[in-house]
């Protein structure tokens, strides 16, 4: 377990702007991620959340703005992206330097419950297993920042639940800073310390989730937070005659011309 001082944030993004031709995807985005914090980034499709993650992964150059990142980062993509010609353990050790790479791979695979498939070919794995290998490949690098790009989107509902539990457990043990890009509001609420909604190239909504782990959908305030995030995403779950919500459960709507306030209302456990 890491014992980083809580002083400087792990990730610091200021005024990040990214254009593709005439299309501005990110518009002066600001974000800090504290060391060991689990942040979920939500957004409609095309909102730029994947572009932002790719920037943090170093796959997309910073052309305007400032981004400070830890050097040790790892990514889990939506598709496992395993090399089909490498056995499971060799996929985990890909690009790994230092002694006993195989031993470290075995340990990482044990953590995701796949140490019995060390010598399997990726083509023989199920979708969930392949994604667990991808997770092990990221973990084995002991990243300071773990970037998850909709890693569970392509999995079936049951497998997704197990993956949520696995990721929550691994995060509790290793405590990397995490940025999870997702379109699944429930996933964000179950896993993250903070849920952000990206809109018009900026973070427009911020919601702190303080409930202790492990969480379940039955936790207090779940449905209200869910409705808040969904409405920030443009989905009105309550319909026109919505149920009145206590004011302090409403997610912080960041004004258009301001930076996101870091004093988002915190949901009180009753």
């Amino acid at each position: 377990m890491k014992t980083n001082p809580r002083s400087a944030p792990d990730v610091s993004v200021r005024g990040l702007t990214r254009r593709f031709g005439a299309n501005t995807v990110l518009r002066g985005l600001d974000l800090d991620i504290e060391s060991g914090e689990f942040v979920a980034l939500l957004g409609r499709s095309g909102s730029g959340k994947t572009t932002f993650l790719r920037t943090l992964a170093g796959l997309d150059a910073v052309t305007q703005g400032e981004v400070r990142l830890p050097a040790n980062r790892a990514v889990v993509f939506q598709e496992p992206r395993l090399m089909p010609w490498k056995k499971v353990w060799q996929n985990v050790t890909l690009g790994l330097t230092g002694a006993d790479a195989r031993g470290r791979a075995v340990a990482a695979l044990k953590e995701v419950g796949l140490d019995h498939r060390l010598d399997a070919w990726p083509a023989t794995l199920s979708g969930g297993e392949a994604q667990r290998v991808a997770l092990a490949r990221a973990l084995v690098r002991e990243p300071q920042l773990l970037l998850l790009d909709e890693p569970f989107a392509a999995l079936d509902a049951l497998t997704r639940i197990r993956m949520h539990e696995l990721v929550a457990a691994l995060w509790t043990v290793h405590k990397p800073s995490v940025l999870l890009v997702t379109h699944d509001v429930d996933e964000a609420l179950l896993l993250a310390d903070r849920a952000l909604v990206l809109e018009d190239g900026r973070i427009r909504t911020e919601l702190k989730i303080t409930q202790p782990h492990p969480r379940a959908r039955a936790m207090i305030g779940f449905s209200l937070m869910r409705a808040d995030l969904l409405s920030a995403l443009g989905v009105d779950v309550d319909g026109p005659a919505g149920i009145a919500k206590p004011a302090d459960t409403v997610a912080c709507r960041v004004p258009d011309d301001a930076k996101p306030r870091r004093t988002a209302p915190v949901l009180r456990s009753v």
């Binding site: 992964a57 170093g58 796959l59 790892a74 990514v75 993509f77 598709e79 992206r81 090399m83 490498k86 890909l94 690009g95 490949r137 690098r141």
Partner: peptide, 21 residues
Amino acid sequence: KKLLEAGACFGLNHWQILRHI
């Protein structure tokens, strides 16, 4: 291309990308 990108992400240099991917 996604595999090449993953390789770059996991710190492979040009020679390693050629050899492993």
